[in-house]
Amino acid sequence: MSKFKKLVAVTAVLVLALSMALVGCSGGKKLIKDGVLVVGSDCDYPPFIILDGDKPVGFEMDLMQAIADDLGYELEYLPPQNFDTLLTTLAGGAKMDIAVSSLTITEDRAKSVDFCKPYFDSNQACVVRGDSPYTKAKDLEGKVVGAQSGTTGEAWANEHLEGITMKPFNQTSEGLMALQAGEIEALFFDAPIAEYHLATNYPTMKIAEVIPTGEQYGFAVRKGNKDLLEEINASLDRLIADGTYEKIFKKYFPNLEPSVN
Protein backbone atom coordinates (compact mmCIF):
# COMPACT_ATOMS: atom_id res chain seq x y z
CA MET A 1 0.00 0.00 0.00
CA SER A 2 2.78 2.42 0.89
CA LYS A 3 4.47 1.46 -2.35
CA PHE A 4 1.30 2.39 -4.21
CA LYS A 5 1.10 5.71 -2.41
CA LYS A 6 4.68 6.45 -3.28
CA LEU A 7 3.97 5.67 -6.91
CA VAL A 8 0.96 7.98 -6.91
CA ALA A 9 2.97 10.75 -5.30
CA VAL A 10 5.82 10.43 -7.76
CA THR A 11 3.43 10.37 -10.72
CA ALA A 12 1.61 13.43 -9.44
CA VAL A 13 4.83 15.36 -9.04
CA LEU A 14 5.95 14.37 -12.53
CA VAL A 15 2.63 15.35 -14.09
CA LEU A 16 2.69 18.69 -12.31
CA ALA A 17 6.26 19.41 -13.28
CA LEU A 18 5.57 18.52 -16.89
CA SER A 19 2.43 20.59 -17.02
CA MET A 20 4.20 23.60 -15.50
CA ALA A 21 6.89 23.25 -18.12
CA LEU A 22 4.37 23.00 -20.94
CA VAL A 23 2.23 25.85 -19.72
CA GLY A 24 5.25 27.92 -18.85
CA CYS A 25 6.71 27.91 -22.32
CA SER A 26 3.57 29.14 -24.03
CA GLY A 27 2.13 31.57 -21.55
CA GLY A 28 1.55 35.13 -22.57
CA LYS A 29 4.03 35.38 -25.40
CA LYS A 30 2.91 37.27 -28.49
CA LEU A 31 4.75 35.09 -30.99
CA ILE A 32 6.27 31.66 -30.54
CA LYS A 33 9.33 32.67 -32.58
CA ASP A 34 10.44 36.28 -32.57
CA GLY A 35 9.58 38.05 -35.78
CA VAL A 36 7.90 35.02 -37.28
CA LEU A 37 4.18 34.45 -37.61
CA VAL A 38 3.58 30.70 -37.52
CA VAL A 39 0.46 29.89 -39.54
CA GLY A 40 -1.59 26.70 -39.32
CA SER A 41 -4.08 25.62 -41.96
CA ASP A 42 -5.96 22.70 -43.43
CA CYS A 43 -5.02 24.00 -46.92
CA ASP A 44 -8.13 22.43 -48.43
CA TYR A 45 -10.15 25.52 -49.31
CA PRO A 46 -9.66 26.74 -52.83
CA PRO A 47 -9.61 29.58 -53.71
CA PHE A 48 -8.92 30.70 -50.14
CA ILE A 49 -6.01 28.52 -49.20
CA ILE A 50 -4.83 25.46 -51.07
CA LEU A 51 -1.51 23.79 -51.64
CA ASP A 52 0.22 24.39 -54.93
CA GLY A 53 2.88 21.73 -54.72
CA ASP A 54 3.99 22.26 -51.15
CA LYS A 55 3.25 25.98 -51.11
CA PRO A 56 -0.04 27.35 -49.86
CA VAL A 57 -1.64 29.82 -52.26
CA GLY A 58 -4.96 31.66 -52.47
CA PHE A 59 -6.89 34.65 -51.20
CA GLU A 60 -6.19 34.07 -47.53
CA MET A 61 -2.56 33.38 -48.25
CA ASP A 62 -2.20 36.69 -50.15
CA LEU A 63 -4.04 38.55 -47.43
CA MET A 64 -1.91 36.97 -44.75
CA GLN A 65 1.24 37.86 -46.67
CA ALA A 66 0.08 41.46 -46.97
CA ILE A 67 -0.52 41.59 -43.22
CA ALA A 68 2.88 40.07 -42.51
CA ASP A 69 4.55 42.57 -44.83
CA ASP A 70 2.65 45.38 -43.17
CA LEU A 71 3.71 44.25 -39.70
CA GLY A 72 7.26 43.32 -40.71
CA TYR A 73 6.94 39.63 -39.85
CA GLU A 74 8.18 36.55 -41.64
CA LEU A 75 5.53 33.94 -42.43
CA GLU A 76 6.05 30.30 -41.63
CA TYR A 77 3.47 27.69 -42.62
CA LEU A 78 2.99 24.53 -40.60
CA PRO A 79 2.31 21.36 -42.58
CA PRO A 80 -1.41 21.10 -43.39
CA GLN A 81 -3.42 19.41 -40.67
CA ASN A 82 -7.00 18.21 -40.38
CA PHE A 83 -9.45 20.99 -39.84
CA ASP A 84 -10.95 19.48 -36.72
CA THR A 85 -7.59 19.49 -34.93
CA LEU A 86 -6.63 23.01 -35.96
CA LEU A 87 -8.14 24.98 -33.11
CA THR A 88 -7.09 22.41 -30.52
CA THR A 89 -3.51 22.83 -31.71
CA LEU A 90 -3.80 26.62 -31.68
CA ALA A 91 -5.31 26.62 -28.21
CA GLY A 92 -2.52 24.27 -27.08
CA GLY A 93 -0.23 27.25 -27.52
CA ALA A 94 3.04 25.54 -28.37
CA LYS A 95 3.02 25.32 -32.15
CA MET A 96 0.89 27.92 -33.87
CA ASP A 97 0.37 31.67 -33.69
CA ILE A 98 -2.54 32.03 -36.03
CA ALA A 99 -5.03 29.75 -37.77
CA VAL A 100 -5.88 30.64 -41.37
CA SER A 101 -8.34 28.15 -42.76
CA SER A 102 -11.56 29.79 -43.93
CA LEU A 103 -12.55 29.75 -40.28
CA THR A 104 -16.09 30.88 -39.61
CA ILE A 105 -16.28 33.07 -36.55
CA THR A 106 -18.64 31.35 -34.12
CA GLU A 107 -19.45 31.92 -30.51
CA ASP A 108 -18.56 28.32 -29.68
CA ARG A 109 -15.12 28.55 -31.21
CA ALA A 110 -14.62 31.91 -29.54
CA LYS A 111 -14.66 30.03 -26.23
CA SER A 112 -11.31 28.42 -27.00
CA VAL A 113 -9.67 30.97 -29.35
CA ASP A 114 -9.90 34.68 -30.15
CA PHE A 115 -10.98 35.84 -33.58
CA CYS A 116 -9.64 38.82 -35.49
CA LYS A 117 -12.14 40.92 -37.38
CA PRO A 118 -13.95 39.25 -40.29
CA TYR A 119 -12.56 39.51 -43.81
CA PHE A 120 -14.99 37.43 -45.84
CA ASP A 121 -18.74 36.80 -45.95
CA SER A 122 -19.72 33.22 -46.46
CA ASN A 123 -22.71 30.88 -46.45
CA GLN A 124 -23.33 27.18 -46.53
CA ALA A 125 -24.02 25.27 -49.70
CA CYS A 126 -25.92 22.04 -50.07
CA VAL A 127 -24.11 20.31 -52.93
CA VAL A 128 -25.67 17.36 -54.75
CA ARG A 129 -24.93 15.32 -57.85
CA GLY A 130 -26.05 16.86 -61.16
CA ASP A 131 -28.77 14.27 -61.67
CA SER A 132 -30.03 14.52 -58.12
CA PRO A 133 -33.74 15.16 -57.53
CA TYR A 134 -33.07 17.28 -54.44
CA THR A 135 -33.58 21.00 -54.86
CA LYS A 136 -33.25 22.27 -51.32
CA ALA A 137 -31.52 21.29 -48.11
CA LYS A 138 -34.77 20.17 -46.45
CA ASP A 139 -35.17 17.48 -49.12
CA LEU A 140 -32.21 15.70 -47.57
CA GLU A 141 -33.98 14.92 -44.30
CA GLY A 142 -33.72 11.24 -43.48
CA LYS A 143 -30.88 10.79 -45.99
CA VAL A 144 -27.17 10.03 -45.70
CA VAL A 145 -25.25 13.28 -46.03
CA GLY A 146 -21.70 14.40 -45.42
CA ALA A 147 -19.66 17.33 -44.19
CA GLN A 148 -16.13 18.04 -43.19
CA SER A 149 -15.61 17.10 -39.59
CA GLY A 150 -15.81 20.00 -37.16
CA THR A 151 -17.14 22.53 -39.68
CA THR A 152 -20.12 24.87 -39.52
CA GLY A 153 -21.64 22.88 -42.37
CA GLU A 154 -21.70 19.79 -40.20
CA ALA A 155 -23.19 21.71 -37.29
CA TRP A 156 -25.85 23.34 -39.49
CA ALA A 157 -27.03 20.05 -40.97
CA ASN A 158 -27.10 18.34 -37.58
CA GLU A 159 -29.18 21.12 -36.08
CA HIS A 160 -31.57 21.82 -38.94
CA LEU A 161 -32.21 18.53 -40.71
CA GLU A 162 -34.15 15.73 -39.08
CA GLY A 163 -33.24 12.07 -39.36
CA ILE A 164 -30.05 12.52 -41.34
CA THR A 165 -27.09 10.18 -41.09
CA MET A 166 -24.06 12.46 -40.98
CA LYS A 167 -20.78 11.16 -42.38
CA PRO A 168 -17.90 13.36 -41.36
CA PHE A 169 -14.83 13.59 -43.59
CA ASN A 170 -11.31 14.79 -42.87
CA GLN A 171 -11.23 16.80 -46.06
CA THR A 172 -13.87 18.42 -48.21
CA SER A 173 -12.31 16.78 -51.25
CA GLU A 174 -12.90 13.34 -49.72
CA GLY A 175 -16.51 14.28 -49.18
CA LEU A 176 -16.83 15.32 -52.82
CA MET A 177 -15.44 11.98 -53.96
CA ALA A 178 -17.86 10.16 -51.67
CA LEU A 179 -20.68 12.24 -53.13
CA GLN A 180 -19.61 11.37 -56.65
CA ALA A 181 -19.41 7.70 -55.70
CA GLY A 182 -22.96 7.81 -54.36
CA GLU A 183 -21.93 7.09 -50.82
CA ILE A 184 -23.72 10.23 -49.62
CA GLU A 185 -26.61 12.17 -51.11
CA ALA A 186 -25.36 15.68 -50.35
CA LEU A 187 -22.33 17.45 -48.97
CA PHE A 188 -22.63 20.55 -46.81
CA PHE A 189 -19.77 23.01 -46.93
CA ASP A 190 -18.92 26.64 -47.42
CA ALA A 191 -20.65 28.15 -50.45
CA PRO A 192 -17.69 30.07 -51.96
CA ILE A 193 -15.54 26.94 -51.81
CA ALA A 194 -18.39 24.93 -53.31
CA GLU A 195 -18.69 27.43 -56.17
CA TYR A 196 -14.99 27.12 -56.85
CA HIS A 197 -15.00 23.30 -56.81
CA LEU A 198 -18.06 23.05 -59.06
CA ALA A 199 -16.61 25.52 -61.55
CA THR A 200 -13.31 23.66 -61.77
CA ASN A 201 -13.07 20.03 -60.67
CA TYR A 202 -16.65 18.86 -60.26
CA PRO A 203 -18.74 20.21 -63.14
CA THR A 204 -21.09 17.22 -62.78
CA MET A 205 -22.35 18.48 -59.45
CA LYS A 206 -24.65 21.32 -58.55
CA ILE A 207 -25.55 23.49 -55.62
CA ALA A 208 -29.07 22.55 -54.57
CA GLU A 209 -29.37 25.49 -52.23
CA VAL A 210 -27.27 28.25 -50.79
CA ILE A 211 -28.20 28.42 -47.14
CA PRO A 212 -27.91 31.96 -45.82
CA THR A 213 -26.10 31.47 -42.56
CA GLY A 214 -24.54 34.92 -42.47
CA GLU A 215 -21.21 33.49 -41.45
CA GLN A 216 -17.93 35.31 -41.78
CA TYR A 217 -14.34 34.18 -41.89
CA GLY A 218 -11.76 35.45 -39.45
CA PHE A 219 -8.20 34.61 -38.46
CA ALA A 220 -7.94 32.97 -35.06
CA VAL A 221 -5.23 33.57 -32.45
CA ARG A 222 -4.61 32.04 -29.03
CA LYS A 223 -7.13 32.99 -26.43
CA GLY A 224 -5.89 36.05 -24.56
CA ASN A 225 -3.18 36.94 -27.08
CA LYS A 226 -4.45 40.51 -27.16
CA ASP A 227 -1.23 42.03 -28.53
CA LEU A 228 -1.30 39.95 -31.69
CA LEU A 229 -5.07 40.29 -32.07
CA GLU A 230 -4.87 44.09 -32.00
CA GLU A 231 -1.88 44.20 -34.34
CA ILE A 232 -3.66 42.08 -36.92
CA ASN A 233 -6.90 44.02 -36.63
CA ALA A 234 -5.05 47.32 -37.04
CA SER A 235 -3.19 45.93 -40.03
CA LEU A 236 -6.43 44.70 -41.62
CA ASP A 237 -7.89 48.19 -41.17
CA ARG A 238 -4.87 49.73 -42.88
CA LEU A 239 -5.06 47.26 -45.79
CA ILE A 240 -8.77 47.99 -46.22
CA ALA A 241 -8.16 51.72 -46.12
CA ASP A 242 -5.33 51.75 -48.67
CA GLY A 243 -7.14 49.46 -51.14
CA THR A 244 -4.79 46.49 -50.80
CA TYR A 245 -7.59 44.31 -49.43
CA GLU A 246 -9.91 45.16 -52.32
CA LYS A 247 -7.15 44.46 -54.84
CA ILE A 248 -6.55 41.02 -53.38
CA PHE A 249 -10.29 40.37 -53.10
CA LYS A 250 -10.96 41.28 -56.74
CA LYS A 251 -8.07 39.09 -57.88
CA TYR A 252 -9.90 36.02 -56.58
CA PHE A 253 -13.55 37.12 -56.67
CA PRO A 254 -13.89 39.54 -59.57
CA ASN A 255 -17.68 39.30 -59.56
CA LEU A 256 -18.25 39.91 -55.86
CA GLU A 257 -18.40 43.04 -53.79
CA PRO A 258 -15.62 43.12 -51.20
CA SER A 259 -16.91 41.76 -47.92
CA VAL A 260 -15.53 44.56 -45.79
CA ASN A 261 -14.93 48.17 -46.68
Binding site: D121, N123, A191, E195, I207, V210, P212, G214, E215, Q216, L256, E257, S259
Partner: peptide
Protein backbone atom coordinates in the same frame (compact mmCIF):
# COMPACT_ATOMS: atom_id res chain seq x y z
CA UNK B 1 -29.67 34.47 -53.49
CA UNK B 2 -26.39 32.81 -54.45
CA UNK B 3 -24.40 35.28 -52.37
CA UNK B 4 -26.34 36.33 -49.28
CA UNK B 5 -24.41 38.82 -47.17
CA UNK B 6 -24.63 39.40 -43.45
CA UNK B 7 -25.19 42.75 -41.83
CA UNK B 8 -23.94 42.66 -38.30
Amino acid sequence: PMHPRPDN
